[in-house]
């Protein structure tokens, strides 16, 4: 990977990886050697927060689609549900 990408990966491991004392002390040392690191980590944290919002927005759209498919006008979700119920009832009766 390019050095820029490796740096993103390093910050990601610090922000999202398991927090160990070894990582904390290594990070502290790196911030002393690289004065921009802390600010870049804060900026990267905002990217993750934005991606969380985008993901949640996408999930809500998916849930609204599911709702329309199950209960929306024209989907006849209730009709399909009723038909499935009738089919399973017939199957049970037929088995007897």
């Amino acid at each position: 990977m390019r050095p820029e990408l490796t740096r993103l990966q390093l910050i990601e491991q610090h922000l999202l990886g398991p927090a160990t004392p070894a990582d904390a002390s290594a990070w502290q040392l790196q911030t002393l050697l690289d004065p921009d690191l802390a600010a870049d980590a804060a900026a990267q944290q905002q990217l993750y927060a934005g991606l969380q919002l985008a993901g949640r927005q996408q999930l809500r759209q998916e849930l609204q689609l599911i709702h329309r498919q199950l209960y929306g006008p024209g989907s006849a979700g209730w009709l399909r549900g009723a038909a499935a119920g009738l089919r399973s009832l017939f199957k049970r009766r037929f088995r007897r």
Partner: peptide
């Protein structure tokens, strides 16, 4: 989300 103004700004770019 009301306290997430910087994240909301990122959302546009996502």
């Amino acid at each position: 989300e009301s306290e997430a103004a910087p994240a909301l700004a990122v959302l546009d770019y996502v």
